[in-house]
Design a protein around this nucleic acid. Sequence first.
DNA 1: ATCCAGGAATTTT
DNA 2: AAAATTCATGGA
Length: 245
Amino acid sequence: MHDGWYYVVTREKVFRIRQEGDELFYEGASDNFIRHFFGFDEDYAAIKKQLKKDAVLADAIKQYPGLRIIKQDPWECTVFFLCSQFSNIKKIKRNLDLIAEKFGKEIIFKGKKFFTFPPPGAINDLKKLKKCSVGFRAKYILAVNNAVSDEFFARLRKLSYIEAKEELMKLPGIGEKVADCILLFSLDFTESFPVDVWMERVMKENYAVTLPLRKMSFFGREKWGKLAGYAQQWLYHWKRLHKNP
DNA sequence: ATCCAGGAATTTT
DNA sequence: AAAATTCATGGA
């Protein structure tokens, strides 16, 4: 955030965006990119109407009506969640900033310096990677970096949710939760329902679900279908920020 | 100082 | 098959 603009770097792209009232201004990205990135073609009014039938979600949506799922770059999203295990969001962001500095390209946009995120295959130096304070996750990042490509992620989009998830979970460091996050946040599988410690708390405290963590993801998909991912985001956000009712 | 953080792999019951 | 342990690092 600077001078009223939000600067966004995603993979090799940098753009800035600003809202005035109900008008949106942006520079550095095409209309189509912006539409997909923010999901402006998705009918959020209809999604919210449907999810509000659930009492807990009704409260979450009331408190955070503007919440959206941003469509991230699949590879960058993968590295993010490879870094996520046993860590926290602030530190993960720092990990990705360091990776961009050491492996990405410097670009100047509107007189400001940014670093692009390196493409698959470019994170090929274990020593440099270790300096990004990713710790024991370095071996996973390196292995996945060598195993995937942009084409790999493009192929996943054509598979079913189950098939795509199985493919992701073959990769080292990617379990059920990380796979679900990649599918939801970057590959348009809106039925994905990632379950982490926070979602486990929501399920137990607000839905009286005591299934093993592994089966909670299935529970969410059964309950909300193609809208499970949206439900997950509202519940997750609500549980993290909202004081317990 | 001690504890914990958007989990997954490995080892032990 | 399920439960416990281990895995680096930084911030509170």
